[in-house]
Design a protein around this nucleic acid. Sequence first.
RNA 1: GGGCGAGUAACUCAGCUGGUUUAGAGUGCUACCUUUACAAGGUAGAAGUCACAGGUUCGAAUCCUGUCUCGCCCACCA
Length: 896
Amino acid sequence: MKDIPIRYDPQKKEEEIYAAWSRENLFHADEDTARTPYAIVIPPPNITGILHMGHALNNTIQDILIRWKRMEGFETLWMPGTDHAGIATQNVVERELAGEGLKREEIGREKFLEKIWQWKEEYGSTIIRQLKRLGCSCDWERTRFTMDGGLSMAVREVFGRLYSDGLIYKGGYIINWCPRCATALSDEEAEHREVEGMLYYIKYPVMGRDKLEKENEDYLVVATTRPETMLGDVAVAVNPKDPRYSGLEGKTLVLPIIKRELRIIFDEDVDPEFGTGALKVTPAHDPVDFELGARHGLESINVMHPDGRINALGGDYKGMDRFECREAIVEDLKQRKLFIKTEKHVHAVGHCYRCHTVVEPRLSKQWFVKMKPLAIEAIKVVKEGRITFYPSRWTKVYLNWMENIRPWCISRQIWWGHRIPVWYCRDCLKYENVRDVDVKGPGKRGVCVSMEKPDKCPVCGGTDMEQDPDVLDTWFSSWLWPFSTLGWPEDTGELRTFYPTDALVTAQEIIFFWVARMIMAGLRFREDIPFRDVYIHGTVRDTTGTKMSKSLGNVIDPLDIIREVGSDALRFSIISITSQGQDVFLSKEKFELGRNFANKLWNASRYVLMNLEGSAPDEEISEGDLTLADRWILSSFNRTAEKVTKSLKAYRFNDAASALYDFIWHKYCDWYLELSKFSGSKGATQKILVKVLKGFLRLLHPFMPFITEEIWQKIPGEKHKWIMTASWPGPEKKYDNAKAAGDMEKLIGVITAVRNVRAFWNIGHAAGIDVLLNVKGREDRELLEENVRYIEQMARCSVRGIEKDIPRPDRSVAALVEGIRLFVPLGGAVDIEKERTRVNKKIEDLQRYLNGIDKKLKNKAFVEKAPEDVVRKEEARRQKFDEQVKTLKDNLGALK
RNA sequence: GGGCGAGUAACUCAGCUGGUUUAGAGUGCUACCUUUACAAGGUAGAAGUCACAGGUUCGAAUCCUGUCUCGCCCACCA
């Protein structure tokens, strides 16, 4: 067995093992078995992405679940896939194109899409390869992509159904517009960030003036954060109750620079407290103003091009960028003495979630889904507990969003994505541009929603059909993922077997984008929930608490970690330090935990294998042969298996990890393995060593798939080739043994006490010491006698007697553990004075605790009201500490 | 403006329904140990008024209220 290296080397085997797993095709059971299905769907990473720590955490959790369930005998399915990420992917390929000096408009839609597909073929599966590297045991043959034929079919089907149900419409509203990506965004895609901006105070003169010659002429002051939008102003609004503006009925103002006449409108929604209480109204560039405009019948004047430059309606500012225009306008207003001041003002500004450009609220024609009707059921299933969030606090977040849901803007002015399945008949509609068509609901003449391009217009028979140029929001395909990946709208076997799925594991950022919408889609189109449990894990941050992101340069690349310490160590570390749903603060050093753990397991296994010398121990264990240590480790293993299973059920992965860590390190290695070196019955011990190791490897396998597989396959005589399909260790009731646990505790206590004395009194490691054991009863005596060799070896001492009333020798120190008193005679001279302080401090500590218990016991209320067993325990503890204090006090006296 | 999370040893964090834990772990620190699985290791040790203030209770790190610090999410105050 000298060929097993002393250090665990993850690199050697990982890829080989992974490849072998794939070949064996062990990822889910045969379809015709009668096993209970268990399915999870991957949150599909987008094709432009590369594996980051968030993915590593997310997929490790999923892999743990699926491997665990597979071992438990479920018919498991973990369906992988990727997301086409419309805007992000288009941006990437556009950048590439820009490198060649080209714009997408120059090569045209078709050519551009071809280029993206090429790019996707080349780079789109990077993340899939990386997930494999992490050890993910997905059913890779079923890998799906949101733009696959089947999934695209589902998208069109859903669009059609929602359309005919009257839930899809097209119209002009204020939407979030990214000027850089030149597309509409949904509310969720605009990330609001606190920005320190300015509040600009501007004078709007009464009608007839464009500039003020004197300071005291008639004007009204408005405050705005976006002065450039004044180019589109059509009114000024004040609160009808605001006394400052009570005399203004019927008057009009003039919009500076543009010289447009502005009405003064009165509306309750205007907050008199803010700014000057007068609000400039720009219906085309602000959602509040848009509503005001609608209520008061105002015109909307859109003054911006899609790219954020001012258009022809902006007069002299035409062609300026919006921020450039802002400065220019302020300058001009100053010249005209219409500018009063700026004030610092912190407010939340929307940013494009793909390119972080400041989002412009902009009036445009877009397609929307009415969400309120879909939300009703989605609220109900969560309230009724058919879907459970872990941790539960997310329930509230979900419900709050769902109850205040707003229409979903689903059209995007980009090319990469699912083209909107709407065709317009040019004969029926005389519009120049199909973008300008309003569609309030189904049945509109000249508008045809269809899975394929219609040959002719169903109304007039005309053949001049033009498809809507826009594509759908990427999430419009993602929200169908749980069933579209299983073949929907076909009624497939997979769909019937695996829908609803069991668990969804995802990050908090994606609850609204994805989780909530999947629930709505599942209920609407499958009439059933998409999953039962939603586990929301924390966000991976760096040590300063900042979210890890490429642009900040604070990322720890999981692939670097894998290269340095291996996938297993990465997985185990990140799971260990992530308690349920809490954010994770990562630094590179944290992966040493997993690395050291892997090495410890490796070496423990190495020891076991060395002892076997290549031959398999027979599996029969006759219970008569079992030593105390054997019975204890078997029982202790049962406890561990129980704890791990229970923790997994509750999605408490770090609890499971620490139970595994504690067992193998502090029970199996520190004690059982050490004791085994001095065990009398070599054969039985060997069997137990192997048996427990094998059980442990199976428990650990979901967490550390590679190392457990490698060790498993080194164990001679193991018939089950792959640990990944071995069974999950259930409790072996016959090995439960509370007595062994208690006895072992005593034995460990005695050994520790002897070591303790040695260290406390500075007795050299090499020096031999004698120990006398004073026991109270026959049972203890027998226990210690039986295991005396362990005490002598583990504590490096000679036991000179185990008796009921063994007298205390002269010049000895005593210790008390579990009712057993041990005496250690100290040979040479001991400087008691030197030690007195230390001993006294110890006594003080104990005494303080003892006093606490005394106080408690003297409290009548406690004795009367607390449950009897609590009181009894307290009394026993009092007794124990009392004796210990006495024992310690005696030590100083006895040594004199 | 609303909501959520965190504040426990020098550091990073566990601690689930209040009493069996003298408040734990890992790292770091101190002393000793190269004992033939492992120095990425072993043995022993030091280290904490569980953010603060009240309350409920026989009993609070744990439940309630308030305060303070930090972080996050949501929201159309221009």
